[in-house]
Design a protein around this nucleic acid. Structure first.
Lengths: 108, 108
DNA sequence: TTGACATGCAACCAAAAGGTTGCATTAATT
DNA sequence: AATTAATGCAACCTTTTGGTTGCATGTCAA
């Protein structure tokens, strides 16, 4: 999996909003997704292409319409591989910092 | 919490690498973090500033040295608030898509 | 106090990101 | 066949991003 593409895709608030809208109602067309956004259809197309390249959105052409479906798998994978790592660090990190703060006359 | 700053901070591979290095050894100085990276000290400074602004890194000046500590809390918060949402969507999303794919003579 | 070490600040630059407009293509409707 | 609807493609523009270099500041050591 291309974790970098997923992180970059998630970095933009408009794209996270698009994912949220697909979460609320899956299988929307480009036109539907554009409605209510303060941005042109072409801009939305670009955002959706980035989401699709990151495999966060799966599309389905039928006739002249293009339906968009949320794919939560890449987010799951990142959560499992990357964030889980930081779970175990939670306690340790703050202890390290606290010790350093208290040890004010340390080996500076 | 500023979720956007966290997402943006995590979008860059160099910054994720810096977090990984702090995970491996917490409390490193700017100079130590710069070593082995194919980039100038000033570039690293900028990356660390972005991580610090996102509250992913906490710094501590002591004399002429600046120590950097990993703060995993913002990542935990995002995992809880944002990714948990997509946990429940996992099954549903693929079912929706599959149904659409099979229903080939649908209301296109 | 002089010199070396660790970091900060600022100007600058190229490339990427996010957006726009205009036109082309494809598919449904009448 | 002509019209309308949904989307694709491409050129263009501005701002942000990621990086550089040069110099300044602060701090430790001799």
């Amino acid at each position: 999996m291309e974790a970098d593409a997923v992180f970059k895709a998630l970095a933009d608030a408009s794209r996270r909003d698009l994912l949220d809208r697909l979460f609320d109602r899956n299988g929307q067309t480009l036109g539907e997704l554009t409605k209510g956004l303060a941005m042109s259809r072409q801009a939305v197309t670009k955002h959706l292409a980035i989401l699709e390249a990151a495999n966060l959105v799966i599309t389905l052409r039928r006739g002249r319409k293009k339906f968009h479906y949320l794919n939560p798998v890449p987010i799951q994978l990142i959560a499992a591989r990357w964030i889980g790592k930081y779970d175990e660090a939670r306690a340790a990190a703050l202890v390290d910092l606290k010790r350093e703060l208290e040890n004010d006359d340390g080996q500076g």
